[in-house]
Protein backbone atom coordinates (compact mmCIF):
# COMPACT_ATOMS: atom_id res chain seq x y z
CA UNK A 1 0.00 0.00 0.00
CA UNK A 2 2.82 2.37 0.89
CA UNK A 3 4.35 2.03 -2.54
CA UNK A 4 1.06 3.15 -4.07
CA UNK A 5 0.98 6.13 -1.77
CA UNK A 6 4.56 7.02 -2.59
CA UNK A 7 3.96 6.59 -6.29
CA UNK A 8 1.06 8.95 -6.29
CA UNK A 9 2.43 11.54 -3.91
CA UNK A 10 3.59 14.56 -5.79
CA UNK A 11 5.13 17.82 -4.64
CA UNK A 12 1.86 19.53 -3.79
CA UNK A 13 -0.86 17.94 -1.69
CA UNK A 14 -4.00 17.45 -3.83
CA UNK A 15 -6.15 19.45 -1.39
CA UNK A 16 -3.74 22.36 -1.54
CA UNK A 17 -3.77 22.19 -5.29
CA UNK A 18 -7.55 22.13 -5.33
CA UNK A 19 -7.56 25.22 -3.13
CA UNK A 20 -5.25 27.08 -5.51
CA UNK A 21 -7.47 26.28 -8.47
CA UNK A 22 -10.48 27.33 -6.36
CA UNK A 23 -8.74 30.63 -5.56
CA UNK A 24 -8.25 31.18 -9.29
CA UNK A 25 -11.95 30.61 -9.73
CA UNK A 26 -12.93 33.08 -6.99
CA UNK A 27 -10.52 35.60 -8.50
CA UNK A 28 -12.39 35.30 -11.79
CA UNK A 29 -15.63 36.19 -10.04
CA UNK A 30 -14.11 39.35 -8.56
CA UNK A 31 -12.43 40.09 -11.90
CA UNK A 32 -15.91 39.89 -13.44
CA UNK A 33 -17.38 42.22 -10.83
CA UNK A 34 -14.56 44.76 -10.90
CA UNK A 35 -14.40 44.89 -14.68
CA UNK A 36 -18.17 45.41 -14.82
CA UNK A 37 -17.54 48.23 -12.34
CA UNK A 38 -14.92 49.81 -14.61
CA UNK A 39 -17.25 49.61 -17.61
CA UNK A 40 -20.05 51.31 -15.67
CA UNK A 41 -17.64 53.87 -14.18
CA UNK A 42 -16.98 55.21 -17.66
CA UNK A 43 -20.64 55.75 -18.45
CA UNK A 44 -22.83 58.63 -17.48
CA UNK A 45 -24.72 58.76 -14.21
CA UNK A 46 -21.92 57.71 -11.90
CA UNK A 47 -21.69 59.33 -8.47
CA UNK A 48 -18.38 59.26 -6.67
CA UNK A 49 -18.13 58.28 -3.00
CA UNK A 50 -15.69 58.36 -0.10
CA UNK A 51 -14.73 55.09 1.54
CA UNK A 52 -15.77 54.94 5.22
CA UNK A 53 -13.14 55.18 7.97
CA UNK A 54 -14.09 51.75 9.23
CA UNK A 55 -12.68 50.16 6.07
CA UNK A 56 -9.23 51.46 7.05
CA UNK A 57 -9.51 49.92 10.49
CA UNK A 58 -10.73 46.64 9.03
CA UNK A 59 -7.76 46.62 6.64
CA UNK A 60 -5.50 46.82 9.68
CA UNK A 61 -7.37 43.94 11.33
CA UNK A 62 -7.15 41.60 8.37
CA UNK A 63 -3.47 42.31 7.72
CA UNK A 64 -2.76 41.61 11.38
CA UNK A 65 -4.77 38.40 11.20
CA UNK A 66 -2.61 37.20 8.31
CA UNK A 67 0.44 37.57 10.54
CA UNK A 68 -1.35 35.58 13.27
CA UNK A 69 -2.18 32.65 10.98
CA UNK A 70 1.41 32.64 9.76
CA UNK A 71 2.60 32.35 13.35
CA UNK A 72 0.01 29.60 13.94
CA UNK A 73 1.50 27.49 11.15
CA UNK A 74 4.98 28.15 12.52
CA UNK A 75 4.06 27.08 16.06
CA UNK A 76 2.41 23.86 14.87
CA UNK A 77 5.56 23.04 12.92
CA UNK A 78 7.55 23.44 16.16
CA UNK A 79 4.93 21.39 18.01
CA UNK A 80 4.07 24.24 20.40
CA UNK A 81 0.40 23.44 20.84
CA UNK A 82 -0.45 26.20 23.33
CA UNK A 83 0.96 28.87 21.04
CA UNK A 84 -0.76 27.23 18.08
CA UNK A 85 -4.12 27.42 19.82
CA UNK A 86 -3.47 31.04 20.75
CA UNK A 87 -2.58 32.14 17.23
CA UNK A 88 -5.50 30.31 15.58
CA UNK A 89 -7.77 31.90 18.21
CA UNK A 90 -6.38 35.38 17.53
CA UNK A 91 -6.84 34.97 13.78
CA UNK A 92 -10.41 33.92 14.41
CA UNK A 93 -11.13 36.93 16.63
CA UNK A 94 -9.54 39.34 14.14
CA UNK A 95 -11.54 37.72 11.32
CA UNK A 96 -14.80 38.26 13.18
CA UNK A 97 -13.67 41.78 13.99
CA UNK A 98 -13.03 42.41 10.30
CA UNK A 99 -16.59 41.43 9.38
CA UNK A 100 -18.02 43.57 12.19
CA UNK A 101 -15.95 46.56 10.99
CA UNK A 102 -17.18 46.06 7.43
CA UNK A 103 -20.69 46.17 8.81
CA UNK A 104 -19.85 49.37 10.70
CA UNK A 105 -18.48 50.76 7.43
CA UNK A 106 -21.79 49.95 5.74
CA UNK A 107 -23.62 51.78 8.52
CA UNK A 108 -21.34 54.78 8.05
CA UNK A 109 -22.22 54.77 4.35
CA UNK A 110 -25.94 54.53 5.08
CA UNK A 111 -25.65 57.50 7.40
CA UNK A 112 -24.29 59.50 4.44
CA UNK A 113 -27.23 58.41 2.29
CA UNK A 114 -25.17 55.92 0.31
CA UNK A 115 -27.41 52.85 0.09
CA UNK A 116 -27.61 49.68 -1.95
CA UNK A 117 -30.53 50.99 -3.93
CA UNK A 118 -29.50 54.30 -5.38
CA UNK A 119 -26.78 55.22 -7.78
CA UNK A 120 -25.28 52.22 -9.54
CA UNK A 121 -21.86 53.17 -8.11
CA UNK A 122 -23.22 52.62 -4.60
CA UNK A 123 -24.81 49.30 -5.59
CA UNK A 124 -21.48 48.08 -6.91
CA UNK A 125 -19.69 49.20 -3.75
CA UNK A 126 -22.05 47.24 -1.52
CA UNK A 127 -22.09 44.12 -3.69
CA UNK A 128 -18.30 43.92 -4.10
CA UNK A 129 -17.49 44.64 -0.45
CA UNK A 130 -20.35 42.39 0.70
CA UNK A 131 -19.19 39.49 -1.42
CA UNK A 132 -15.68 39.81 -0.12
CA UNK A 133 -17.04 39.75 3.44
CA UNK A 134 -18.94 36.54 2.61
CA UNK A 135 -15.69 34.95 1.50
CA UNK A 136 -14.06 36.05 4.74
CA UNK A 137 -17.00 34.50 6.60
CA UNK A 138 -16.23 31.20 4.84
CA UNK A 139 -12.66 31.49 6.17
CA UNK A 140 -13.94 32.29 9.67
CA UNK A 141 -16.06 29.12 9.63
CA UNK A 142 -13.02 27.06 8.56
CA UNK A 143 -10.96 28.62 11.38
CA UNK A 144 -13.75 27.93 13.84
CA UNK A 145 -13.77 24.24 12.92
CA UNK A 146 -9.99 24.18 13.28
CA UNK A 147 -10.17 25.91 16.66
CA UNK A 148 -12.87 23.58 18.01
CA UNK A 149 -10.80 20.60 16.97
CA UNK A 150 -7.85 21.99 18.94
CA UNK A 151 -10.06 22.67 21.98
CA UNK A 152 -11.49 19.15 22.13
CA UNK A 153 -8.06 17.67 21.54
CA UNK A 154 -8.75 16.28 18.11
CA UNK A 155 -6.05 18.25 16.30
CA UNK A 156 -3.46 16.00 14.69
CA UNK A 157 -0.03 17.37 15.62
CA UNK A 158 1.68 15.71 12.70
CA UNK A 159 -0.79 16.94 10.10
CA UNK A 160 0.02 20.44 8.89
CA UNK A 161 -2.35 20.33 5.93
CA UNK A 162 -5.56 21.70 7.50
CA UNK A 163 -3.90 24.77 9.00
CA UNK A 164 -1.86 25.35 5.85
CA UNK A 165 -5.04 25.23 3.79
CA UNK A 166 -6.71 27.69 6.16
CA UNK A 167 -3.63 29.93 6.05
CA UNK A 168 -3.45 29.98 2.25
CA UNK A 169 -7.13 30.87 1.98
CA UNK A 170 -6.80 33.47 4.70
CA UNK A 171 -3.84 35.18 3.02
CA UNK A 172 -5.86 35.12 -0.18
CA UNK A 173 -8.89 36.93 1.27
CA UNK A 174 -6.49 39.38 2.91
CA UNK A 175 -4.71 40.15 -0.38
CA UNK A 176 -8.05 40.26 -2.17
CA UNK A 177 -9.25 42.90 0.27
CA UNK A 178 -6.09 44.97 -0.20
CA UNK A 179 -6.61 44.76 -3.96
CA UNK A 180 -10.26 45.80 -3.62
CA UNK A 181 -9.37 48.65 -1.27
CA UNK A 182 -6.76 50.04 -3.70
CA UNK A 183 -9.15 49.46 -6.59
CA UNK A 184 -11.97 51.35 -4.87
CA UNK A 185 -9.65 54.16 -3.80
CA UNK A 186 -8.28 54.65 -7.30
CA UNK A 187 -11.45 54.23 -9.31
CA UNK A 188 -14.41 55.93 -7.73
Amino acid sequence: MNTVVMEQRKKLHPHKFTLWVGIGSILMMFAGLTSAYIVKRNQANWLSFELPHWFWYSTGAIVLSSVCIMLAVRSLKKGEMAAYRGWVGSTLVLGVLFIVMQWMGFRELWAQGITLVGNVAYSFLFVIVGFHALHVLGGVIALLVLYIKILIGKADRSNLVPVQLAATYWHFVDLLWIYLMIFLLMIR
Binding site: M1, V4, V5, Q8, R9, H13, P14, H15, D156, S158, N159, V161
Partner: peptide, 8 residues
Protein backbone atom coordinates in the same frame (compact mmCIF):
# COMPACT_ATOMS: atom_id res chain seq x y z
CA UNK B 1 -0.10 13.69 3.20
CA UNK B 2 -2.14 11.61 5.57
CA UNK B 3 -5.33 12.20 3.66
CA UNK B 4 -3.69 10.98 0.47
CA UNK B 5 -2.65 7.89 2.32
CA UNK B 6 -6.17 7.44 3.64
CA UNK B 7 -7.74 7.98 0.27
CA UNK B 8 -5.45 5.72 -1.66
Amino acid sequence: MSSVATLQ
